[in-house]
Amino acid sequence: MFVIDCPWCGERDMSEFSCGGEAHIARPEGSEQMNDEEWAQFVFIRKNSKGRYAERWNHAAGCRRWFNLLRNTATDQILAVYKMGDAEPNVSTEEPVTPSGEAPIGSGNDAVKLMKPGEAL
């Protein structure tokens, strides 16, 4: 659970929002020319990154407006909130050291700690 800083309403509990999935997926131009593979890419394939991830949220129980949110999916730390149509801001975050590694703080995974606190990043 996290608190989301709605660009219009300020900080609110996550339960007021609904998640709209990965951001910045534009409907391809010239879609009448597209083959099945390209459609599959657009409709189904998702980045699903562990680490930095841009997604859309809607303040469903508030102002009901959409916005983008940049979050670290390995820790759920929110890195930036920005408006629809804006480019992804260049905010750095602590990415997992190994591809499937767990961050020292915030991963919620106490069973598999591959990265120990204080370890060099």
């Binding site: 659970m1 996290f2 509990d13 996550m14 699903n48 979050r71």
Partner: peptide, 13 residues
């Protein structure tokens, strides 16, 4: 939970 995440927690609501 409705969002993509690798944190083995989830939210209270």
């Amino acid at each position: 939970d409705p969002y993509v995440s690798y944190t083995q927690r989830g939210s209270f609501d």
